[in-house]
């Protein structure tokens, strides 16, 4: 075979199936031998991560650059507190001017989040429920999440909870907890009349439960608040919310006309579904808050 044929001739012959390119391997190896030696090979993410000082300087630089860019954006934002800003448009006017007529709630924010945007609030409640279920999956004590040392620690904690007396904390908790829970109930029930609502009232009730649990120990809490009651309250709250909103979506979309009476704005029993929805959301939030506390401290509700 003539080795001095040109590359094109070889290729032609190869395409015709007359011969194979003999020095193909050699050719490929010479081609890949050309290493691209550039700064990029040294400046990889791995290199930056290993070099702590460079990493710190770079991250500070990126953050400062980010702040500078955002400050320049803030500089050209419309003026703070001006009534003619583009954010204060006809949507806000609609909520404020026909809000009482359409929802019956004096608190415009409650009317907005539980009537106009009730579907969004349903999603929020689901997000909270999903979060507490994930925490249950990760932290609840069962046969897969168990070690003898932890069990011993928990038993010691229980021993101290039941046998050691903290008079100041316990008497204080006994006096304050009912008031805190009562205040939470007030905030929930007046959600459509005053500042507050399901989320804030639920958090207040959750705080009361956490205070009681931290003063008297988990054992005493479990006499009236077990995992069973927790799941029952959460799931029934979500289902009631879903049923209420399904009813109002169905009747509203089909113009059936069986609307819940709005009542006189300003009364406690008014504004249609907002009060029951507030109660549902409050129960879910209270259970979630206490559930987070119990799962993070003892790994059990």
């Amino acid at each position: 075979m003539d080795e001095k044929k040109s590359f094109l001739k070889h290729l032609e012959a190869w395409v015709d199936g007359e011969e194979v390119i003999l020095d193909a391997d050699k050719y490929i190896s010479t081609r890949t031998k050309k290493e691209k030696r550039s700064w990029r090979h040294h400046f990889t993410i791995q290199y930056v991560k290993e070099n702590k000082k460079l990493y710190g300087i770079l991250s500070i630089g990126i953050s400062v650059l980010f702040i500078a860019i955002m400050l320049s954006v803030v500089n050209s934002l419309p003026e703070y507190g001006n009534a003619h800003n583009p954010a204060n448009n006809e949507v806000m006017e609609r909520y404020l001017e026909s809000g009482i007529e359409e929802t019956g709630a004096i608190n415009f924010v409650a009317g907005m989040i539980l009537d106009y945007r009730a579907f969004d609030t349903f999603g929020e409640s689901n997000v909270l429920f999903l979060a507490v279920m994930c925490v249950v999956l990760l932290l609840k004590k069962d046969k897969n999440n168990y070690s003898e040392q932890e069990e011993q620690e928990i038993q010691e904690d229980d021993y101290f909870d039941t046998n050691e007396k903290h008079p100041i904390l316990q008497i204080g908790a006994k006096l304050i907890t009912p008031l805190v829970i009562l205040y939470g109930i007030y905030v929930i029930l007046n959600g459509h009349l005053s500042p507050g609502g399901g989320f804030s009232g639920g958090t207040i009730i959750g705080a009361g439960l956490i205070l009681y649990a931290s003063a008297y120990g988990q054992k005493k809490m479990q006499s009236f608040f077990t995992f069973r009651t927790f799941t029952k309250i959460c799931v029934s709250g979500l289902l009631t919310y879903c049923a209420c909103k399904s009813y109002s979506f169905f009747t509203g979309a089909n113009h059936v006309g069986y609307e819940i009476p709005k009542g006189i704005a300003g009364n406690i029993l008014s504004s249609g579904f907002i009060l029951p929805l507030n109660i549902c959301v409050g129960l879910i939030v209270a259970c979630t808050m206490y559930g987070f506390y119990a799962l993070f401290t003892k790994g059990d509700i």
């Binding site: 009534a83 954010a87 909520y95 404020l96 924010v109």
Partner: peptide, 21 residues
């Protein structure tokens, strides 16, 4: 604040309620 005060139903009396939600 966007809570009915003195029975005024007027959009130019209250702040924007949307960011609160």
């Amino acid at each position: 604040a966007p809570i009915l005060t003195d029975g005024v139903i007027d959009a130019s009396y209250y702040v924007n309620p949307i960011p609160a939600g």
